[in-house]
Design a protein around this nucleic acid. Structure first.
Length: 568
RNA sequence: UGGGGUAUAGUGUAACGGUAGCACGACUGACUCUGGAUCAGUUAGUUGGGGUUCGAAUCCCUGUACCCCAGCCA
């Protein structure tokens, strides 16, 4: 990984607070210089850009400090989890470019060990089987300001607890009939410490263990044990688990096993974006988007389909930093990262989204010239290609104005512009239909300017992209805007929810677009830049006969900005 | 009202008792066969109030604001 920079880079690079802890530990020899992290998703949904922050933190730290990072599925709740999610998560983490080598783990593989440790906890008098119902347990818990009351089953003998717990495992009791709870302190100011449930009865098939188990460990019990078993040194999680750390520590201390350090950091928030699984699900279920990989979704699948590169997302995760307080990153920063990467790597190509026909009156009928075009000015190694030029062309409707203001540099009656890699052309005549709509431009070209330079040294103010009509390929192009009209989609009037802020124009589908013939065999997810327009990515909906492109992000456009300002 | 956290330009993030810096955004300008890219510049900040100190974003006291916690979810 590029992050692996050993000593040299580590000195100059500023460390976030998590890396600072890791660096200090390496220095002090706390873990014998070992660094071992993990990314522990629950396989109950698709990964999104917020997970990418966590992934890059965990894998990034391991890479930077010469350590290891495991991919571990925290699959302790059979009711919500599915193999499909496991597969997609594996795919997404790998797509992002991280490698867990042979360390793909599942919490469910540790169920037996966890069970044995629970028995040990009972034997130490630190856990008991409780017969209270869920509702009763809730009432006994007390409130934020009032202490709880102890369960009447709290003082059962160790023998009885052992027996009952064994029978829980054996399936003697129905769902919810009993739980195993830690014996801590019902008046603890931290509610998590008030005799938390550590096993519940769930007669449900697990996606990996099938019906082997009918009791399942709770997160607080399971997570630290998973970390301990794997020899994790730094257990990095999000802020809402801060309140759980005393419990994490309590369990590991009670068992006197390897005890990693839990460190909490703030989740990612992005403007114009929702990150909650529940709300993203709602968008899918209520058909506000086409699916989990809709290019407007912040899921990694959505971003991939939109055309984001793994590098751009990793760069973004690096540049946003890590902290302990809630903040909201400007979506423009994500756009900056993707433009920066795609500018370096994307082959340029010419495409006309809203075609306006141009006929060159003085160009020979039937003649076709194949002109040389540069594939990527940022990367000479990308080479060149040939694009066809002939009498009938298409240019962008936006590139012509009949009554052009001074600041409009493009084509207008009597004005001369350059067609990229081709010739200077001058607009002689505007052809309209009965309604007055412009349907065609008659232009003349200057044969002396072949390739794009005038021998007499005269200049033009603009260079337009174009496509030769006869050789052009038809394409569908999907233009995306923010899914929400507000920076904070949750900001709503009374009685409304976030769906009130959905942007009705977040997707615009253009058909009859014209693209240059070199795009003929474009593969799905192939990225390119449409010159002067933006970065695009072939959608998986593309077929041999029908090309479909998604716009990832526009190029920065000072003319568009100018126009926007004037409208206001 | 209990407990646990956190506050630095518009946004994000550094500064670890010693010149408040960087990035994004916004705004100028230069350059350009992409109104792209690139380059140069401008803009703007320590949550309030006390204190310690030659010196405080940093240490102390005290307000204020925001986030998290009462699942047999993670």
């Amino acid at each position: 990984m590029t992050e692996h920079n050993g000593q040299a880079g580590a000195e100059t690079e500023r460390l976030d607070f998590v890396r600072q802890i890791v660096a200090d530990d390496c220095k002090s020899g706390k873990w014998d210089g070992r660094v071992h992290t993990r990314f522990p998703p629950e396989p109950n949904g698709y990964l999104h850009i917020g997970h990418a922050k966590s992934i890059c933190l965990n894998f990034g730290i391991a890479a930077q400090f010469g350590g290891k990072c495991n991919l571990r599925f925290d699959d302790t709740n059979p009711c919500k989890e599915e193999q499909e999610y496991v597969d997609s998560i594996i795919h997404d983490v790998r797509w992002l470019g991280w490698d867990w080598e042979d360390r793909l783990y599942f919490a469910s593989d540790y169920f037996e060990q966890m069970y044995q440790w629970a028995v040990e906890l009972i034997q130490k008098g630190k856990a008991f089987v409780c017969d209270l119902t869920a509702e009763q347990t809730r009432r006994h818990r007390g409130t934020l300001t009032e202490p709880g009351t102890e369960s009447p089953y709290r003082d059962r003998s160790i023998e009885e607890n052992l027996d009952l717990f064994a029978r829980m495992r054996a399936g003697d009791f129905p769902d919810g009939a009993r739980t195993l709870r830690a014996k801590i302190d019902m008046s603890h100011p931290n509610i998590n410490m008030r005799d938390p449930v550590i096993y519940r009865i769930l007669h449900a098939a697990h996606h990996r263990t099938g019906d082997t188990w009918c009791i399942y460990p709770m997160y607080d019990w399971a997570h630290g044990l998973e970390d301990s078993i794997e020899g994790i040194t730094h257990s990095i999680c999000t802020l809402e688990f801060e309140n759980h750390r005393p419990l994490y520590d309590w369990f590991l201390d009670a068992l006197a096993v390897h005890h990693p350090q839990q460190i909490e950091f703030a989740r990612l928030n992005l403007t114009y974006t929702l990150m909650s699984k529940r709300k993203l699900l709602r968008l899918v279920q209520d058909k506000y988007v086409s699916g989990w990989d809709d290019p407007r979704m912040p899921t990694l699948g959505g971003l991939r389909r939109r055309g984001f590169s793994p590098d751009s997302i990793r760069k973004f995760c690096k540049v946003i930093g890590v902290n302990k307080f809630n903040s909201t990153i400007d979506y423009a920063l994500l756009e900056h990262c993707v433009r920066e990467d795609l500018n370096r790597t994307s082959p340029r190509v010419m495409a006309v989204l809203r075609p306006l026909k141009v006929v060159l009156s003085n160009y020979p009928d039937g003649q076709v010239e194949w002109l040389e075009a540069i594939n990527n000015p940022e990367d000479p190694a990308a080479g060149t290609r040939k694009v066809p030029f002939s009498k009938v062309l298409y240019i962008e409707q936006d590139d012509f104005m009949e009554d052009a203001p001074k600041k409009f540099f493009r084509l207008a009656p009597g004005r001369e512009v350059r067609l990229r890699y081709a010739y200077f052309i001058r607009c002689d005549e505007v052809v309209k239909d009965a309604d007055g709509t412009i349907i065609e431009l008659r232009c003349s070209y200057d044969p002396a300017t072949r390739g794009g330079d005038a021998p007499d040294g005269r200049k033009v103010k603009a260079t337009l992209h174009w496509v030769a009509a006869e050789q052009a390929l038809d394409a569908e192009v999907r233009l995306y805007e923010h899914l929400f009209t507000k920076e904070d989609p949750e900001q709503t009037e009374d009685g409304q929810d976030f769906t009130a802020n959905i942007n009705p124009d977040s997707l615009q589908i253009l058909t009859g677009c014209k693209v240059e013939p070199s795009l003929k065999d474009t593969e799905p997810l192939q990225r390119c830049q449409f010159e002067r327009l933006g970065y695009f990515c072939a959608d998986p909906d593309s077929t041999a006969g029908k090309l479909v492109f998604n716009r990832t992000v526009t190029l920065k456009d000072t003319w568009a900005k100018l126009q926007k300002k004037q409208k206001k």
